[in-house]
Amino acid sequence: MSGIDVDLAVNGLITGLFYALMAIGLSLIFGILKIVNFAHGEFYMVGAYAYTLIALALGVPVWVALPLAFVVGAALGWLTERTLMRPLYAGYTSWGLMRDEYAVIVTFGLSLFLINLVDKVIGPYAYRGPPLVETSRIVLGPVLISGHRLLAAGIAIAVIAITAALIKWSFWGQQIRAVSQNRLGASLAGIDTAKASAIVFMLSGGLAAFAGALLSPVINASPDVGVFPAIKSYIIVVLGGMGSVPGAIIASLALGVIESFGAVYLSYQYRDAFGLILLMLFLLFRPQGLFGEKGREV
């Protein structure tokens, strides 16, 4: 491995960490409701704005603005679940058939709504978020990295670890996994499935917003800034096996590295198409993802 390769690998992994913040939430939502949230990128976007505006307009320190961005994202996730996701499971039996269509329509509609609302209310201009630290370039051997990015990566690792631990060991984490495996069975066992869904949406809204906040000094907040991270997280969730959190984390890191190398060694022009082609191929030939088992047919 040459020095450039090490640099590419490290930077790819760091990008992968940010992808993971997005993808974990998307995967949890798929797990619990069996839908793809097409408004996931807008949670990210709202987080980027929340952090930037709270820090810049209100003059609040970045270390307060960062958790506040999480809170704003979580609130948005919660609101989304309460107002729009209920029909997916709350007894609307005749909705059974329309379920998938409904989920695509409302999340797609919500995405358009949020993008255009922000565009009108805050404006189409990009806002650069304040970096967590002002150090510019740090050189670590062959790796060149900005202070903010390094710090943000560290924070991302911590948040991912905490989230994974919560899902694995906390009370609600176990309930969420139970509902994801078998909603009916879980509800018969006395688990509050509605609450589990609400928690999942809060968590994934918060995580996506957090990713947006962390990246806002690098990728400026703008109304459609969430579109690309969202597409990345679709790819990751498919690669990692829809609904699997460990799968999502591994696939995030993998995609970060693949893209980082692909852009240099394959084609910069088409770098955004690689992941999508991978996504299509997987859905067509291996819908259970890299790690998943093929499910029992109905």
Partner: peptide, 24 residues
């Protein structure tokens, strides 16, 4: 053989690939 969210995602990525190819 795809339905629901899988179909939506596949067609969405088809759409983006086509657009990226046209744009690039």
């Amino acid at each position: 053989r795809l339905a629901g969210p899988y179909l939506a995602l596949t067609t969405l990525s088809f759409a983006e690939i086509m657009r990226l190819v046209a744009a690039n």
